[in-house]
């Protein structure tokens, strides 16, 4: 299997506290890398370093050339990043939010598949409602709808706490989606306190326990 990313000797220090050091990780295509650790262990920071949004982490990181763009960040149209801030603009409808997310990745998606993706996350009937009138869980779902679009050019998902604010049913649905994405050759890097049980899941523990 292709090695997507190799990182060596990652070192992170924040506010006079060493979060992790000598951290090495390999990411192989088709696996689910589950980063675990207590609150404040630097999970999000590590994730942001992987996609080039963090400067506090020192160390070498290189992406496979199919992913990397000058070695600093993965080429944008090949991954979804679901952040702590869900990038859901409250003054826009779920449909507009999703369409803009797609446009930023310069993908061609037909209107019906946008509607279908929103229906998949249980937002049927809410497509044209301003996002600020939705509940917190529903707003997270707007962000999650991107994962249901099945864009062929996106082979990597970077998910920061994807299960936050979701109900039990939605959690198990998302779990299935993540697993089937990995089975089709996609790669997932995620942080979560929720356990995943699948053959391709590899857990990576960071933080105080180490």
């Amino acid at each position: 299997m292709t090695k997507l990313a190799v990182a060596n000797n990652l070192f992170c220090e924040r506010d006079d506290r060493i979060l992790f050091k000598d951290l090495s990780l390999n990411i192989t295509q088709g696996e689910i890398v589950h980063i675990k650790g207590p609150n404040g262990a630097g999970k999000t920071t590590l994730l942001r370093r992987l996609i080039g949004l963090s400067w506090v982490v020192e160390g070498d990181l290189s992406w496979h050339e199919s992913v990397s763009e000058s070695g600093i960040r993965p080429d944008g149209h090949r991954f979804w990043y679901l952040a702590h801030r869900p990038a859901v603009t409250l003054m826009q409808t779920p449909l507009e939010n999703l369409a803009f997310a797609v446009a930023m990745h310069q993908a061609d998606v037909s209107e019906p598949s946008l509607w279908a993706a929103l229906a998949d996350v249980g937002l049927k009937g809410f497509e044209d409602v301003p996002a600020h009138s939705l509940s917190a869980g529903q707003q997270r779902r707007v962000a999650l709808a991107r994962l249901y679009l099945n864009l062929p050019q996106i082979k990597l998902w970077v998910l920061d706490e994807p299960f936050t604010a979701l109900d039990v049913q939605a959690v198990s649905q998302l779990e299935t989606t993540i697993e089937s994405f990995a089975e089709q050759g996609g790669t997932v890097i995620m942080t979560s306190h929720h356990g995943l049980h699948h053959t391709s899941v590899r857990e990576l523990h960071i933080g105080a326990a180490a």
Binding site: L53, R85, P86, T89, M91
Partner: peptide, 17 residues
């Protein structure tokens, strides 16, 4: 400011364009 607060801004920086 609004884009920064809801997280759209970081997505813009990660855009493929």
């Amino acid at each position: 400011r609004n884009d920064f607060e809801d997280g759209s801004l970081e997505q813009m920086l990660l855009s493929s364009a």
